[in-house]
Simulated scan of single mutants.
Amino acid sequence: MVKSKTIVEQIVSRDIEAVIVYESEHVIAFADHDPINFGHILICPTQPYGSFIDLPVAVHDEIQHVARDLYHKIVNKFNPDGMSFIQNNGTCNELSHYHLHIFPRFDGDQFGWVSSELGIQSIDVLRESLAGL
């Protein structure tokens, strides 16, 4: 059975159109088609690594370099109040292909973080939960 290409692989091979802002042999960056705000970019390896831990060090390093460069460009173009970086792994990664989101934030943009029902924890509970790391 032939494995189907990820969306990112389809963008790399130009099977899907995207607004590409950076491309090399190992990394591609393009506009998110459903942006949080204008300037929302996905930075991805050109190969389908599934998670952060799967990335070769050189690819990881290039992604970080591209993120830093795009950070400056996004700030200069959009003058945001802040910037967010988000990277999901496992079943939280809807693309099944490593990708780092970088996007400008603006006061009142309504993007938010929804926490679980755990609530605020004491230092002792946090210490115990992380024992052995």
Rank of each mutant, 00 (worst) to 15 (best):
Q47K: 07
H60I: 10
D61M: 08
I7P: 09
C92P: 13
S122R: 01
I28T: 01
L118T: 15
L130P: 05
Q110P: 04
T91W: 12
H60R: 14
C92Q: 14
S24P: 10
D124S: 11
N88Y: 10
S24N: 10
Y49L: 08
F52H: 11
N93D: 10
Y98T: 14
G108R: 12
H72D: 09
H99Y: 04
H72M: 12
G50C: 14
D69T: 15
D124P: 03
A67M: 12
I20Y: 00
R14G: 03
D69L: 15
I16W: 03
I36G: 06
V114L: 01
F106Q: 06
I63M: 12
E94W: 15
I11C: 04
E9K: 01
H60S: 14
Y49G: 08
A67H: 10
I63Y: 10
F85N: 06
R105S: 04
N79H: 13
P80W: 04
V125A: 03
P56Y: 07
G82H: 08
Q121D: 06
V2R: 15
R127S: 12
I7R: 15
Q87W: 07
H40E: 06
P48V: 02
G39P: 04
F52P: 09
G112N: 07
N88F: 12
I63K: 09
L95E: 06
S4W: 03
G112F: 02
S4M: 08
L95K: 15
S13N: 00
I86Q: 05
Y49P: 08
A31Y: 09
G119F: 00
P56G: 10
A31L: 11
K3E: 14
D15L: 09
T91E: 15
Y22Q: 02
I120Y: 03
N93M: 13
A58S: 09
D54N: 11
V57Y: 06
Y49D: 05
F111T: 13
K5P: 05
Y49S: 06
D81Y: 08
Y98L: 13
I63W: 06
L95W: 06
F85H: 08
P45K: 05
Q64T: 15
R14T: 01
I16T: 05
V75N: 15
S51T: 12
I11Q: 04
H65K: 15
